[in-house]
């Protein structure tokens, strides 16, 4: 249909990209269509020549590709993220991409789109995943900073989206101190700031502050992988925190050596997934990208036709 692919994992002629996370947005396609923010993020990550040609999709504006109607709608996942509605012969299919329903001060909120077939992600598609309000999690982080003023708090957060959201939430909670960031976050934080998302004073978490007490009481944000690395040695007796929906499961936190799990996710939890399926009014649901079987089971109980789409190449651990 229409001769294009959504979030292809291999280079193709025409790709429609929902958002800038690396497992969805890859370089090397001949033609790429995405929101302007997503295109800018891809250029930041892969260089200006990440695709042969690019075309900006304006949210809510219908376009035609090979006789097929295509419309991008906000997905509430990260800055620039979109769902893609595809229409042909009176049938509308919505590809959700990754999405969440919780408020996020760093991106536009998800809009439910009425459709016949809803292709939904299911990263947290189990009834055990219910994300608490992110503000409560940030309050727990700040409480811990007060409790342990002699230690640095290392907040593991994905470089695109989660990191900026955590920083913005800290500012909303009244935290005005400089926040130290890992080098991998610098470009994206700059980009968010340019887009008018005020992240407050950010400083590089450089080794120059090697008198370790320099980081006592500080909040440091970096990609989760960095904290298991030698990089983390510059901080005094750090409290390792991780902002992720996976942190709902205690064993996950234990396995990663996380001392302060923060349950903050850019994906929908179980209640958001099920509520969204109802809102779209879809008669048929395709479930992908996560724990398909539980959500398919739920659809069956609700009398909604559903099937799993087992796609390869996406990171199960997304978030």
């Amino acid at each position: 249909m229409g001769d294009f692919f959504v979030d292809p994992v291999r280079p193709v002629d025409r790709a429609l990209i929902t958002h800038g996370h690396a497992d969805h947005a890859r370089s090397g396609h001949a033609h790429v269509m995405a929101t302007d923010d997503t295109l800018a993020i891809m250029a930041l990550r892969y260089g200006e020549d990440f695709a042969g040609a690019t075309q900006t999709a304006v949210l809510g504006e219908r376009m035609e590709i090979g006789g097929v109607g295509v419309t991008f709608h906000p997905a509430g996942h990260v800055l620039g993220s979109a769902q893609i509605a595809v229409e042909q012969a009176g049938t509308r299919i919505v590809v959700s991409g990754d999405y969440k329903r919780q408020a996020d001060p760093t991106c536009l909120p998800f809009e439910p789109i009425a459709c016949d077939i809803f292709i939904t992600e299911a990263t947290f598609g189990l009834p055990v995943f219910r994300h608490p309000p992110a503000e409560e999690e940030v309050a727990r982080l700040l409480k811990s900073v007060r409790q342990f003023p002699e230690r640095a708090h290392l907040v593991g957060a994905y470089a695109l989206g989660k990191a900026q959201r955590m920083i913005r939430l800290l500012r909303d909670a009244g935290y005005e101190e400089p926040i130290y960031i890992h080098g991998a976050l610098a470009k994206l934080c700059d980009f968010y700031q340019q887009k008018g998302i005020d992240l407050g004073p950010l400083e590089p978490a450089t080794v120059d502050r090697a008198n370790k007490e320099g980081f006592a009481g500080a909040i440091v944000v970096g990609p989760p992988s960095a904290f298991a690395d030698r990089w983390a040695r510059r901080f005094p007796d750090p409290v390792s925190a991780f902002a992720s929906g996976w942190m709902r499961i205690r064993q996950r936190a234990k396995q990663r050596g996380v001392e302060l799990p923060l349950i903050v996710s850019d994906h929908s939890d179980w209640d958001e997934l099920t509520a969204t399926i109802h809102e779209t009014g879809a008669g048929e649901v395709w479930v992908t990208h996560g724990r398909e079987e539980a959500l398919v089971r739920w659809c069956e109980i609700e009398g909604i036709k559903a099937r799993p789409l087992h796609l390869v190449g996406y990171e199960d651990e997304g978030d």
Partner: peptide, 25 residues
């Protein structure tokens, strides 16, 4: 709660007390 959904959940979490506390409707 649907026993099948509970079974998926318990299977994933691995701890009964934690599964019940999280999946409780």
């Amino acid at each position: 709660m649907d026993p099948v959904l509970f079974a998926y959940s318990y299977d994933y979490v691995g701890d009964l007390a934690e599964t019940v506390s999280l999946a409780w409707q």
